[in-house]
Design a protein around this nucleic acid. Structure first.
Lengths: 221, 221
DNA sequence: AGATCATTCAAGCGATAACTTGAATAATAG
DNA sequence: CTATTATTCAAGTTATCGCTTGAATGATCT
């Protein structure tokens, strides 16, 4: 009665950690942070096969990080609660705080040491009201359609070069994407700054923005 | 340049999660939460072989959850910073919040539904000052010697039955051990309540008590 | 320098996880 | 009821993990 229950408990904790230990599942969680999704949509977005995706989702469900419900023939998955998001965030924070490798990857993305600080969500919300900033949503069009920051332009990374001439160099640009795991915004900022524009990245992405209760342009779910 | 850095980042996050995904490493982290330790001491406490223990420690170090320094011929490991402890805690909280299995294990330990609420650290600190409570430290003697809550009795689980007659049924007993991962305090409370004593568990263990800056009877490190 | 001790490295084994393929289940539409 | 669509299950393959054993490294002591 002394060694067995202790190990059983630790096995349960380890199960949750193991669920977070595969890049494929982190991608799925990032997608689910945007909102609930069916299996096929998740497979599409992540590039996994449907069967593989389903199996990963079942592992996440076993760890109770996500839950599912039926809607007709489809099974819709969603994050169990905000604690799942909190755990993902803390994992990211610890990884970024500690791992030189992560720093190097992010630095490479942002084009060197001139990468500026991220804009806090509160700051952006305040400046939105004044209209003193251009907001850029670097997510795929369907995710933009499902909800975005009011007034944000939606733009794929590949289109950024094209619209550079239309942007006012005097107005600061703030780019955002899915969230901390997503690197679209990093890449967009790097591209814009290469053209001499005053661009910064939003701290967090749309899930965090929504979690904070900030103004949202809602679309069809 | 679009898929590769993203995967590389996720691999890094996954590495940290994978480091937390083995019960043996969670045991090591629990030990290290008590204070820094050498490899041999950790192997002793966890029951791992020395080589195995060393390999686990190196995985934790790769994930930057722990760091090491040399002291003579010994290599001393410690938690990198408080964020490591925070990550362990959140992992535990998510697991306990979500997994019915964990609930059942803990309920089994505490002898059914009459398990009382844990005492908060602030409450215990206040009542320590009044002397209106008996504090029981259920950790091994060497850990007690290295530091404990002032006035706490040190007692192995197996000795509890023997001292029951000497305890005043009118005074509440608060038991603590290493921390949230440790189940000694749960077991001690179950044993004491079986004898009709008024026993409760402290929320958290000595690492959390120390982290809060509460009074400590320090010993030789 | 040689001996000793603590730790790490390296190789090997069994178990587990990720992914693929193809079949089975569940809910709806005709 | 049968056909269709979405998801899950099951079997098989390859890669990785955890553990053991035995040798190698690094620092201290005499």
């Amino acid at each position: 009665m002394s060694i067995s229950p202790k190990l059983a408990l630790l096995e349960e904790y380890a199960l949750v950690a193991r669920a977070l230990s595969a890049p494929a599942r982190l991608m799925l969680l990032e997608q689910l942070a945007q909102g609930e999704r069916g299996v096929e949509a998740l497979a599409d977005k992540t590039g996994l096969t449907i069967a593989n995706c389903s199996q990963h989702l079942q592992q996440l469900r076993r760890a109770a990080l996500v839950t599912s419900r039926r809607d007709g023939k489809a099974v819709i998955y969603r994050l169990t609660d905000a604690k799942t998001l909190a755990l993902m965030d803390l994992l990211r924070i610890v990884a970024e705080r500690n791992l030189a490798q992560v720093e190097r990857i992010l630095r490479g993305l942002s084009g060197g040491k001139d990468a500026p600080e991220a804009v806090s969500r509160a700051d952006l919300a305040a400046r939105l009201a004044e209209g003193s900033v251009t907001v850029l949503d670097v997510r795929p069009a369907d995710e933009y359609a499902a909800g975005h920051i009011p007034g944000a332009l939606n733009m794929a990374l590949t289109e950024i070069e094209r619209i550079v001439p239309t942007l006012d160099p005097a107005t600061e640009i703030v780019a955002y994407c899915r969230g901390p795991y997503c690197i679209y915004a990093h890449q967009a900022v790097a591209a814009l700054r290469k053209h001499g524009l005053n661009a910064r990245r939003l701290d967090g992405g749309l899930p965090e923005w929504r979690e904070d209760g900030l103004p949202l342009m809602a679309g069809a779910q």
